[in-house]
Design a protein around this nucleic acid. Structure first.
Lengths: 328, 328
DNA sequence: TTTGTAAGATAAAACCTTTTAGCAAATATA
DNA sequence: TATATTTGCTAAAAGGTTTTATCTTACAAA
């Protein structure tokens, strides 16, 4: 790369001191009693040569980088992709820049990423944590690095959180299935993960089914399996238990459930899934959705983190966002 | 944040000089004739206190940040999400870290992002450019910043590129539709954009249709329109022209086409789309795909950029990757 | 004994900012 | 007139690295 202009180039070319230029560029001209004439001269020159301060040096000196690390499991999941989008927008409004990374369920990689971001003096973290990250996140918190968790908490990490009303959402979703006359055998498909949001969704399902005294029909899928195997397991679950309605704990599972239903020509009357997917309105039977309020989650996450960075938050806040049922 | 250990803390605590510690940490102990005993002592201590060098200071001094900026139109598009994933992996193997951003068709924002990345001494850029970015990208190139474009070139930007064989892909896709006995009226749905990959796909479609002397039936959609309006336009296009097969230029358009077909109960025998989508195998009729070789694209992009950073590339390379037809 | 060389380490400059503390001249106050 | 205050600006330190040039000591060669 070509050499860039530095503040001292500006100062030299203008015959003033570096300090003066710095004050002016940081809007402290008045406060530091720099004359208007000089202020204008510097500003004009800076504009003319299109000088941009070196952010590294700035961050090194100030200790602030005005950037936030966003860590999610998989950015190609539409839920995370969308939330990342909104978080980026809100953060930008607060003058922060997001750098994001997928952790891909790889604990080692996740830890490296957190370290990497920390090394670059990230001002704070927004994390949808995977299990096993408790220690490294607790280290951040111990080092007084602002952290907000979303989508799921970690049981042994005490910090700000933004969660969806998982129990209530799954309960409403199940009730919706129950309202269909035909539904007698309602299955729930989740993952083997012990992540709290998954537990909440299971709980909501159970609560609803227990309400009417129906059988609990639950399948836990190992997401590490090959797609083919997942589809086959879902086929077995659906056909053996003669399900006529299913609640999926995530859109990823719903997609695989649809594959099983299609491939094996199974007959299921009603489907509903947590989170949306562009396919849900296009398939037969259509998939209703328990849709999380992505915009609200993003907004709250950013609010909590920014306030924390600015030292405006005394004690940990735990925000819970309701979700919305999209019937199809 | 709590104060972090610095290299001089290490040096002081050990009673050696900062220089020595730096040499050792950068693997230059031998070369700089530091004794093995001291080397070990320093390394052990560094490990014990878990010291990590400040990357900002490092970058400031060396001018290298070991990170690459990845700019795409929309990270929530599965094509870009997947490619980002792979690029991240390959870059990581070369010791580079990716920071990525969606530009969201917002020219102003895109320019800001490029400036922002540049200000942070990004080592290079990987960009799927939108129109109107020519100037700012040319500025980068003029400043000798390594740049690789992918998915689409910019007519007036001269740099390394990695593209998919769009013409050939669309040609093969159209031929596939033509092989279906029933297909007499084959439509092509694209965007109003003049992006080169779109032009290539149109060209491939035309070539195939011209081959057999069929009518050209082309609809250009404005992606800025509300979804509802897009669906309605597609409905009109399909029904007025009595299409029995359609080639979509992107998965986003195919999804909306499916909505139109479903909503208005249209009858179309065969569909094919550029890029994949999880819905394509689940809907009726299923959507075949002209699938880009995402892994190969990612690998080539990273290879070109890294070689460029290391000054190993004399003249601009233009890599073209074939795509694969997934018949459904 | 002197000179040369290798070994082992380091001081200080450089990268580019921000910010503290202070200087000189002009003006106001006593 | 002498002193205090304000105005306008700046030198230098600090932030944490890397790297160049140099220094000291020990030993070998002449």
């Amino acid at each position: 790369m070509k050499k860039r202009l530095s503040i001292s180039d500006i100062a030299n070319n203008l015959g003033v001191s570096v300090t003066t230029v710095s004050f002016i560029l940081n809007g402290k001209a008045k406060e530091k009693r720099i004359s208007e004439a000089l202020t204008k001269r510097v500003l004009d020159y800076v504009k003319k040569v299109d000088y941009k301060p070196n952010q590294l040096a700035k961050s090194l000196r100030t200790g602030k980088s005005k950037s936030i690390g966003l860590l999610v499991e998989d950015i190609s999941n539409p839920f995370f992709a969308n939330i990342a989008d909104h978080i980026e927008k809100f953060a930008y409004d607060h003058g922060y820049h997001i750098i994001y990374c997928s952790m891909k369920n790889d604990e080692k990689r996740a830890k490296e990423l957190i370290q990497l971001f920390y090394d670059r003096q990230i001002d704070g973290f927004i994390i949808a944590p995977t299990e096993g990250l408790s220690d490294v996140i607790n280290n951040l918190i111990k080092s007084a690095v602002p952290v907000v968790l979303f989508d799921r908490p970690l049981p042994d990490v005490d910090t700000h959180t933004v969660m969806t009303e998982n129990v209530e959402g799954a309960y409403q979703g199940t009730m919706y299935l129950l309202e269909q006359k035909s539904a007698k055998r309602i299955g729930f498909v989740t993952t083997i993960s012990t992540q709290s949001q998954m537990k909440g969704r299971l709980e909501g399902y159970m609560k609803a089914v227990d309400n009417v005294g129906m059988d609990l029909l639950v399948k836990k899928i190992n997401p590490a399996l090959e797609e083919e195997e997942v589809v086959s397991q879902l086929h077995d679950f659906i056909s053996v238990n003669k399900l006529d309605a299913i609640l999926f704990a995530t859109n990823y599972l719903a997609i695989n459930g649809l594959k099983a239903i299609k491939e094996y020509k199974l007959n299921v009357d009603k489907l509903i899934s947590f989170d949306e997917n562009s396919a849900f309105g296009l398939v037969d039977p259509p998939v209703s959705a328990i849709s999380q309020n992505i915009q609200e989650i993003a907004q709250q996450v950013v609010r909590l983190l920014v306030n924390q960075i600015n030292g405006k938050l005394e004690k940990n806040e735990h925000v819970v966002i309701p979700c919305k049922l999209i019937a199809r």
